[in-house]
Amino acid sequence: MNFYESLGFLVLGSRLRRLSETFLADVNRVYAEHQLKFDASWFPVFYILSKQKQVSIRYIADELAVSHSAISQLVSSLQDKGLVKTTASADDGRKKVVTFTAKGLKLQQQIEPVWSALSKAMEELAKEGNHSKHFLKAIGEFESGLSSASLFERVEKHLDQ
């Protein structure tokens, strides 16, 4: 049994971070190998825009459950690269909406086959173990549990006993 396995839930965050870093590095390696100037961190915004075509920064933030500020920074970075543009909403001039530029749309179309292959590869990986096929369901259950009581609250409850 390795170090991480021996500590169980005590190092869950470290194991998930390590898994995430490995996963994202490999995904970025695929993009680079296929000469696609794309970063895995852009995926959520690109995916939402590929389905919605035009969305507000608030909508993206709400969908991803991250701060408006974080999405604004990511959108600004994508704007600087010429991949998206923001304009005032036709309905509400105070609201900014995000759309692909021609360059962004072209890149989105180029990376869709990678997304498809990635999805197939991940499904294949999940089928290799007895428990890994339930991985996404287990993560969903953890997320649901944390929405009812944070880890902080749960730890504090045990420290107060």
Rank of each mutant, 00 (worst) to 15 (best):
Gly8Glu: 11
Gln52Val: 14
His34Phe: 04
Gln54His: 04
Ser6Tyr: 06
Gln52Gly: 06
Lys53Thr: 14
Glu63Phe: 00
Gln54Lys: 14
Leu10His: 15
Leu7Trp: 08
Ser20Asn: 08
Glu33Lys: 05
Ala25Leu: 08
His68Ile: 15
Ala70Met: 09
Ala70Lys: 08
His68Gly: 04
Arg58Gln: 13
Asp62Glu: 14
Lys51Ser: 06
Arg18Met: 08
Ile60Asp: 02
Trp42Leu: 02
Asp26Tyr: 09
Ser67Gly: 14
Thr22Pro: 03
Arg17Cys: 07
Val75Tyr: 01
Arg29Glu: 12
Glu5Lys: 12
Lys51Ile: 08
Val66Pro: 03
Gln35His: 09
Arg58Lys: 14
Ser67Ile: 13
Glu21Cys: 06
Arg18Cys: 05
Leu64Asp: 10
Glu21Ser: 07
Val27Thr: 04
Ser41Gln: 12
Leu49Asp: 04
Ser50Lys: 10
Val45Ile: 15
Arg18Asp: 12
Ile57Cys: 04
Gln35Met: 04
Tyr59Phe: 07
Arg58Ser: 15
His34Met: 11
Lys37Tyr: 03
Gln73Gly: 10
Tyr59Gln: 09
Ser72Thr: 04
Leu16Glu: 04
Ala25Cys: 05
Ser14Cys: 05
Arg15Cys: 06
Ala65Gln: 15
Leu24Ala: 04
Ile71Glu: 02
Phe23Asp: 05
Val55Lys: 03
Ala32Tyr: 00
Asp26Gln: 12
Val27Ala: 04
Asp39Asn: 14
Ala25Trp: 03
Phe38Thr: 02
Lys53Gly: 12
Asp62Cys: 08
Gln73Leu: 14
Ser41Pro: 01
Tyr59Pro: 01
Asp39Thr: 03
Tyr31Ala: 02
Phe9His: 06
Tyr31Cys: 02
Leu10Tyr: 13
Arg29Pro: 02
Lys37Thr: 15
Tyr59Lys: 13
Lys51Cys: 07
Leu12Arg: 11
Ala32Gln: 12
Ile48Pro: 00
Tyr31Met: 05
Ile71Asp: 02
Val66Gln: 03
Arg29Asp: 08
Leu49Ile: 10
Leu36Ala: 03
Lys51Val: 09
Ser67Trp: 06
Val55Glu: 11
Tyr47Asn: 13
Leu16Met: 10
Leu36Asn: 01
Gly13Lys: 10
Tyr4Ala: 12
Thr22Leu: 09
Arg29Cys: 06
Ile71Arg: 01
Leu10Gly: 13
Leu74Glu: 03
Ile57Met: 05
Ser72Val: 05
Ser67Ala: 13
Val55Gln: 06
Leu16Val: 14
Lys53Pro: 02
Gly8Ala: 11
Ala65Asp: 11
